[in-house]
Simulated assay, not measured.
Amino acid sequence: MRMRPTLSWTPTESLSPGTTDLRPVEEALSTGGVLVLSGAGISTESGIPDYRGEGGSLSRHTPMTYQDFTAEAQARRRYWARSHLGWRTFRHARPNDGHRAVAAFEQHGLLSGVITQNVDGLHQAAGAETVVELHGSLDRVVCLSCGDLSPRRELARRLEEANAGFAPVAAAINPDGDADLTDEQVGDFRVVPCMVCGGILKPDVVFFGEAVPPQRVEHCRELVRAASSLLVLGSSLTVMSGLRFVRQAAEGGKPVLIINRDPTRGDRHARTRVALSLGPALLAVADRLGVPATEGAAESA
C-alpha cells in the first residue's frame, strides 16, 4: 500500500499568531483588482470537512493517489464505492455566507478572479462566474483512454443501476467527496466503464500524486500577474499547488492577505493573517463596504 503523501511543513513554523483586524482586507477590496485563492476551509460551513484543520480528514483518511487508482482494479472499486456513496451527500451541499460574499464582491467589480482548490462547485452555485477550478470538479467524469467528459449525474445513475441496494452507512464524508467505508462495506461493488470506448472512468479532479495541468497553472499565474493583491481564504497552503501563487504574488510586490483560523505555510509571505471564521469575517467586510452578501443577493444583484 502506498504511504500518505508526505508534508514538509507543520503549523509551528508560522511566525505570526494571527489577528482579528479586518481593515487590511477591507482596504484591499475597496481598491478592487483582488484575486481570491480559496481552499477547503471556505466550505466547512457548508458541511464539507477540510483536510488539515481541527478534526481535518487527513488525521483519519488517506486520499486516493493517482498511481493507485490507475494501477489497481481493486483500488478503483474501493474508490468508486466510497465516492458514489459520498456523492449522495456531497451534491446536496449549499453555498454558505463565505461563498455568497465572494460572489457579491465579484458582482460589484472588486475582484479580478477566483482560483479555488476546492472541487465542490460552491463558488459557482453562489453566483461567482470567473472561477478557475485548480483541482477540477466532482461534477464531471473523464475517461482516461479517450478523454470523453460526461456529467457526474449520468455516472451516478449508471452506478445506481449496477449496484441496486448499495446503501452502507459511512463513518464520515471527506473534502474530496469520498466516504469512509470498510473493505467489507465496499464488498463486490461494480464499477462501470466509459460508454464511448470502454475505458477507465475517473472524476475530473486532480488526485494526490497527479499534477495540475500546466496550461491551468499558467492561466492562474497570469491572473496573479494581473491582480492588485491576493486574498487567500480557508487554505493552509500546505501543498505547492496553491502556495506557488502566494510566493509569486509576494515576489511581485503584491500584498498577500490571508483569512484562516489556523497558521498557514504562506504566513511568512503575507501582510496579515486574520484568524477568524470565514463566513462571519467576509460578511463583516461586505457590510463595511456596502456590498449585500446575504441569501439571495447573487440572484438579485
Rank of each mutant, 00 (worst) to 15 (best):
A128E: 02
Q117P: 07
I115E: 03
L149W: 10
G127S: 10
G165T: 09
L144T: 12
A125D: 07
G127R: 09
E154D: 13
A103D: 00
S137K: 14
Q107D: 05
G121D: 14
L122S: 00
A170Q: 13
E154F: 06
E106D: 04
L155M: 10
E161A: 14
A104V: 05
I115K: 07
L159G: 02
Q124G: 11
G98C: 05
S150K: 13
Q117T: 04
G136P: 12
F105N: 03
R100V: 03
E161T: 09
E106T: 06
A125V: 01
L110F: 08
A162V: 02
A103H: 00
Q124H: 14
P168Q: 07
V119A: 12
C146H: 08
V142R: 15
A162H: 04
V131A: 04
I115V: 15
C146N: 04
A126Q: 05
S112T: 14
G127T: 04
P168E: 08
T130V: 05
A164G: 13
R158M: 02
D139T: 11
C146Y: 10
F166R: 04
I115L: 12
A171G: 14
A104L: 03
A164N: 01
S150A: 15
A164C: 02
E133Y: 13
A171N: 05
G121Y: 01
D139W: 11
